[in-house]
């Protein structure tokens, strides 16, 4: 079957899968941002308990595999009485996993703000919360965006694993097409190209654009 016919025949499956992947990616990214910010800040907190909780979360998710986590959340969590939709398990797990990696980025970015900035804010008698919110975080945000761009690509790639708990994403649909047609090069090749276009021509440019906007906002161009 010529490739064009193949594409015509199965385009709807690829499109459906792509939309699900997009949804998984967007939601997982959101979960990761929230989890990274909370745990990253907690890891720098004065309270030992807060720090311990953050460290346990970070180490568990960074110390095990995303796939192990997905299976565990999908098959084992219901035994504790939590039953979640597989779609929800998918983006939640991916988000929590990469949030743990993001936590280190948050911490690094905050620490990259020069000490003089803290001192200057203190000298203006700002409250700790104000210092963080008005002075430190805006500068940290600029520092975190480049490595966060890489993390976004990792999140996108990570969402492919949700296919293994039967979320009908691009990976899942591609396998279905492959199983129906045995046209592996066409099926997997198409999916590779779609993921690549996503990463290279959507995620990366958007992150670069954000970097420029934020840098301009704090007056670094």
């Amino acid at each position: 079957m010529p490739y064009l016919d193949f594409l015509m025949t199965y385009s709807s499956r690829f499109i459906d899968g792509t939309l699900i992947t997009l949804g998984q990616f967007g939601l997982a990214a959101l979960v990761a941002i929230v989890a990274a910010l909370i745990s990253g800040l907690m890891k720098m907190a004065h309270s030992k308990t807060m720090r311990a909780i953050a460290i346990i979360y970070i180490e568990i998710f960074r110390g095990t595999s995303l796939l192990v986590q997905l299976y565990w959340f999908y098959f084992v969590l219901p035994l504790f009485g939590f039953t979640l939709e597989k779609f929800t398990v998918g983006f939640l797990t991916v988000g929590l996993c990469y949030g743990a990696y993001g936590a280190e980025l948050v911490r690094g970015a905050i620490q990259s703000v020069p000490r003089g900035q803290w001192e200057a804010a203190l000298a203006l008698n700002m409250s700790p919360a104000k210092r963080m919110q008005r002075i430190i975080l805006p500068q940290a945000l600029v520092a975190i965006l480049p490595p966060w761009g890489n993390l976004m690509i990792e999140i996108l790639k990570g969402t492919a694993l949700v296919a293994l708990i039967s979320v009908a994403d691009l990976m899942f649909e591609t396998r279905q097409v492959n199983n129906n047609t045995y046209l592996s090069a066409q099926a997997f090749g198409t999916a590779l190209i779609i993921y690549y276009i996503f990463a290279r021509f959507m995620v990366t440019p958007i992150m670069r654009w954000l970097e420029r906007v934020m840098a301009r906002k704090i007056g670094r161009t």
């Binding site: 690509i153 492919a160 591609t174 592996s184 090069a185 997997f188 993921y195 690549y196 990463a199």
Partner: peptide, 23 residues
């Protein structure tokens, strides 16, 4: 290098495993 880094490993595993036999 960019291409390999931008696409899921899982997909690359399938690709390499299944595309070979086709040829």
């Amino acid at each position: 290098v960019e291409f390999i880094r931008s696409t899921p490993l899982l997909l690359q595993i399938f690709f390499i495993f299944y595309v070979g036999p086709q040829f």
